[in-house]
Nucleic acid binder design. Sequence first.
DNA 1: TATAAACACGCATAAACATGCATTGCAACT
DNA 2: AGTTGCAATGCATGTTTATGCGTGTTTATA
Lengths: 264, 264
Amino acid sequence: MIKTMPNEALPQERQQWILDRLRSHGRVVAVELAETFQVSEDSVRRDLRELAAQGLCKRVYGGALPLSAASTPLKQRRSEHGNRKLALARKAVTLVRQGQVLLIDAGSTNAAIAAALPERFDLTVVTNAPDVARILIDREGFEILLIGGRIDTSIGAAVGAQAIQEIGRVRADLCFPGACAIDSLHGLWSFDSEEALLKRAMIEASGETVVVVTQEKLGSAATHQIANIEEIQHLVIEHAVDRASRLVFSARGVAVHRADAVSS
Amino acid sequence: MIKTMPNEALPQERQQWILDRLRSHGRVVAVELAETFQVSEDSVRRDLRELAAQGLCKRVYGGALPLSAASTPLKQRRSEHGNRKLALARKAVTLVRQGQVLLIDAGSTNAAIAAALPERFDLTVVTNAPDVARILIDREGFEILLIGGRIDTSIGAAVGAQAIQEIGRVRADLCFPGACAIDSLHGLWSFDSEEALLKRAMIEASGETVVVVTQEKLGSAATHQIANIEEIQHLVIEHAVDRASRLVFSARGVAVHRADAVSS
DNA sequence: TATAAACACGCATAAACATGCATTGCAACT
DNA sequence: AGTTGCAATGCATGTTTATGCGTGTTTATA
């Protein structure tokens, strides 16, 4: 389904179009919008300002980004990245069974997973990430439990003692901790000590743990250990990962799931 | 199938034709309709007003749009009255002082307020709304505390016992409870009992309370009382509110703040 | 540090809009 | 016939909204 570009559009129509475009393309550029709608850049900026005020997008120098996207500079955003995470997410959600309780961490990969969850599947989702919560609020058939606490803005989710305490009061079937790095010998790693503690709490609160990572996080380590490799039951990786890298994990008892190839 | 344009039509026929056109073309423009039916724009507008009142379309500046099945009630609320809420939000944030602790409830108006908060102002924001949290995460200079709990998807924020309990552990300077209705005699109202309890907890946890409302919420009441008028220190209203309505509140000791006229 | 692009803000203008009022046409009733 | 009631309409009035432009500021980048 191809979107036409309306040469004359009502203001509200423009804003709706911008939102659609943000969802499908991941970004909009002010100058381009002005060209498409045949209006001045001022009007476009006014639209973006309003949308941002409503929390529907994030304004950046040059245009706007959807809120789900990380706040990276506009020009160096790669759409390929989105496709890769989408493929990973599609594979990851095949591990979810009806009626389960999921524990979902912060991170763009996990946001993609949340978005890929099947609707009306009677799922309970526990999360410390406003990102993830908001994605699920707009959909149906989810019981959502928000984990509170101090928000670390660089992570984009609640961390700290309170969050860990609240997680301790939950029991989940499946856990999706956002990973900074994973290797077959030493397990799961993070760059932040507090973050590591939280993810550890998540894993302990869950029956099974699913680690979903892009290629560059494979085999590397970081500063703080989150969990041993024995505590991880599933690993979802990209199609491109070579056979050897996959085998070292399955040799340690981890079920390796390979995502479909990315078309782009 | 192309509809012919009836040169003479009864009001009912016109309205039916407009609905058909909305379904097939996705929009109607007032001026065009007036041309098609050979009537004045006033009559067309009257038609649109009636259709909108029946919930059959959505009026926008310039014409009308079909209310798409895709937009849930919550999503819809988010996108309405964008500029009006922007003006309200701009006024509301003038009440915020550097270094304060804010307690911000859910709701589109409050999302606008969050977006309008001055950056690098050393503020601490406590909120139960993923919406609000997410807006602030993308910006700088905020300490964000997330209130956890079960999320009510129709409200879009954490409610229930846990949320109330967590709010009880916080002390804020300023509180922005989302209001369903406010009147000068009986105070602040909500339509949901659980929501009312939560907002009450918020107000009790705060030094001062600021109520920010669009015009249509003024003077009306709802089913569940949140707070007496004495508990509210500030009221931020739209520019268009008449003098009499403003006086009844200031007579009860509420500082009334009038937003600028909506120009953009 | 210099430069251009992107941006915010106020202002002016025109279109779109709401509202009250007078007019028209038509049907029903005395 | 007369006229009463009603709905639809158009017009005049004042208000709101959308837009583009000029000015001055901020931001990104060489």
